[in-house]
Design a binder for these strands. Structure first.
Lengths: 128, 128
DNA sequence: CCGCATCCAATTCGATACTG
DNA sequence: CAGTATCGAATTGGATGCGG
């Protein structure tokens, strides 16, 4: 998998894909994308909405998403200034597989948590 | 999104989901899962296959996946010892949305790369 | 209101060396 | 072969204070 060809092609495609997935993988990107799924939002609005994200990380996340062409950043030079973030078409297309993954996580979270507890209890039993 | 309810429920579900997605998000997990999609594999076989992963990181990744119930670890006490890793049913179910995401990445990678170059050139133009 | 810069703590990761 | 242990380097992230 991760390859159109039947053959096992380790480096080329995989590395590139990993690079793209790195954006999705980080802690905040998908949450921000999820929030922007409904409508465009302002900076502090997003900040409050995502909850737990620091100003710094939100800034970095938004820059990254903008760089990848997933969101647009629109500055309105008023006083106070206003900056709106909105998903691009590309960003909205990403929303589809991300929602699938979110659904998986939501559906299987209980199973995973049970597995974790079981694993952990086995480990502590070994050590003692 | 990321919520079954219509209302905006920021903390509860999202944090838990983030926690689960953190496993998928890290650099090696999805690659390992992808490799195990076809068949079970031994430790060093995986190590060579994933390519770029250090022994340490592969061990940590495999432990994490095992802890979450996504793979099984089977030890055969021979000389030399033999350890096989295999996807569980849960792991195979994760393979589905992950493949979708991989397809997205594969399909849109050129677009993303163009966006990145464009963004970067704008930035350097500003600075100078 | 938006966001950058700096400092500093914590975590992550690779390299290396050593065990059953 | 399949790990564990340790160490230093690099990356990451929060807190704070300043600037447009």
């Amino acid at each position: 998998m991760f390859d159109t060809d039947t053959a096992h092609r380790p480096t080329n495609e995989c590395l590139k894909i990993t690079e793209v997935l790195a954006r999705v993988g980080d802690k905040w990107s998908i949450l921000v994308i999820g929030r922007l799924g409904d409508r465009s939002m302002r900076f502090n609005e997003l900040r409050r909405s995502v909850e737990g994200v620091s100003q710094r990380m939100l800034t970095l996340t938004l820059r990254g998403l903008e760089r990848d062409g997933l969101i647009t950043r629109t500055v309105t030079s008023s006083i106070p200034p206003r900056v709106d973030y909105e998903l691009t078409g590309l960003g909205r297309s990403l929303l589809v597989p991300v929602e699938q993954l979110a659904r998986w996580a939501q559906e299987h979270r209980p199973t995973v948590e049970i597995a974790r507890r079981e694993f952990d209890s086995k480990m502590t039993a070994d050590t003692v």
